[in-house]
Amino acid sequence: MISTAQILYGTSFALIIIGLYAVLSQRNLIRIVIGLNVADVGINILLVTLGYIEGGRVPIFAPGQPTTNWVDPVPAALVLTAIVIGFGVTALMLTLVMRLYAKYGTIDASRIRGLKW
């Protein structure tokens, strides 16, 4: 029987690989940004899964609530930070793509002089 956690780990690694593959194989700058975002989502799922407990409870202190079997709150906090950073980076990248488009009239990396790697 495959547990939920195993499915989530599998999904997260698949997303990371798909995202990085997209970054390396795509020529369209927007698609490269999307690829990085897909990889980011994979990472976030990986982090959340780390704190996941089968049948765990939300870690909030409340009167009358048992304080056992909590899911780990730390990874959730990390994911929040990672999402914010990812958002900032994505916004900055799209700005750059916009400026590049204004300069070259294309978002095809192979047609922009130095963007070959």
Partner: peptide, 24 residues
């Protein structure tokens, strides 16, 4: 300039791949 924007984008893509690895 065109070169600066390209360099920055390239830097950013590699930096973001790097931070993905760092998070793993």
């Amino acid at each position: 300039s065109g070169a600066a924007l390209e360099a920055s984008f390239k830097y950013m893509v590699l930096g973001s791949i790097g931070s993905t690895f760092l998070l793993v």
